[in-house]
Design a protein around this nucleic acid. Structure first.
Lengths: 219, 219
DNA sequence: ATACTGTTTAACCAAATGGTTAAACCTTAT
DNA sequence: ATAAGGTTTAACCATTTGGTTAAACAGTAT
């Protein structure tokens, strides 16, 4: 048998992936504490003991998922950076990619937020590692893009860190607080449409880019 | 004994308050699932059975706390609205009050976010009730303040809902993602100072108010 | 065939946890 | 004094949950 040798490996890989996929679903939905090992096993269609066979403990499995989520997150943001673009386009691209990611993975920010509320040590560790490994790290890229644009006079001079926080916050909020927002604005459907997401992107871009306009300001 | 009659009541009130205070602490720290009834009892310095005596179940106690937190939240935001102020000052006041609240109760947004991630039905219900009871509701006040400012020509015309979401997001993000932000910007202390909070307020205000400048914009 | 290896399963376990109960306790009213 | 009321406690219970184990089940090499 030519491929008999790796049938086992394929299967091993399969089981492991099955577990990871199921675990990701459940952890994203229920969080670290709310998640149940049994539910993960059920959703993966395997025996619960296998969870401990492949990943020693719940804590371990959780860390694995956290890492996975974080990698997805980081990878998408990395895509959003194309050096050399005028800042205006750079900003538009970033908002576009970022909001799209949030739109298709609305649970991720909430998941990370929960982790934050538990102290955020693990996520912070990942971030530290990523910042060292990836060179240069994404945040630094964005920061320097802002600084350069300011030097060129394309935008006014601002603290890039503050701008970054405001931008990310503006992008994220709607997706994190969706149920509340829908209630506040008595929305019935429109805000859940794809068109609304596009509108949201435009609104954030307009506000932020205008907010960086060299004219104006006299606080 | 002059005040013997209400000694019981005082005590009753005390116990109930003790429980609520302890429960708030624990629920804010650990979330609905992470919180343990025993820990709440311990922190209140009373017997666990009393929790069930005063509030039937954990679910019940949680709902009580959720309502409490939400009321604090809503009350503070209400304060931040003084009709008649020029929009510029209105905006500054709002950011000031809002950020201060986040700074002194950093766990609240995280707590509500967790609730959101669990579906957010309960919070949405509170919001609905508040919107009906309070007249006019705070969000509506802000929305109309924006619209009037636009009519006066003080700011450009924007969708108030989008602006509100961007503003709140920009205010909240730092406090929710603090551990991560500190890591990203390799901060050592500065961002945890009171001076930084003031700086943050200013940065958000500048960006947003400038973003509403009638000139500029040509997306 | 058989022994060996890694994989999968059902049954099981100890600890934790939300919740209950019956008795003790304290204050007030009679 | 004593009965009555709400309040507080220690002990207890049923269930859930993460985790373990020993046996069954493949494939593979000898």
């Amino acid at each position: 048998m030519v491929n008999a040798g790796n049938a086992k490996m394929i299967d091993r890989g399969n089981t492991e992936t099955l577990i990871l996929d199921a675990a990701m679903q459940v952890f994203l939905e229920k969080g670290r504490h709310g998640a149940r090992m049994q539910e993960i096993a059920d959703r993966a269609g395997i025996n619960k003991a296998l969870l401990h066979y492949y990943f020693r403990s719940k804590k371990n499995l959780y860390a694995e998922i956290l890492s996975r989520v974080f990698r997805i997150f980081y990878a998408r943001i990395t895509e959003a950076h194309r050096p050399g673009l005028p800042f205006r386009e750079q900003l538009r691209l970033f908002i576009d990619v970022y909001v799209d990611m949030l739109d298709s993975n609305p649970r991720i920010p909430l998941f990370l937020a929960r982790e934050m509320s538990e102290g955020g040590v693990i996520v912070s560790d990942f971030m530290k590692r990523f910042q060292q490994e990836m060179d240069p790290a994404v945040p630094d890229l964005i920061v320097s893009a802002i600084e350069q644009a300011a030097s060129r006079g394309e935008i006014r001079r601002v603290d890039p860190r503050h701008f970054l926080m405001s931008m990310i916050g503006a992008c994220i909020f709607f997706f994190v607080a969706k149920p509340l927002v829908l209630t506040i604005f008595k929305d019935s459907g429109w805000m859940e449409s794809q068109a609304f997401v596009a509108e949201r992107k435009q609104a954030v871009f307009d506000l932020l880019y205008n907010g960086l306009n060299p004219g104006g300001i006299s606080s």
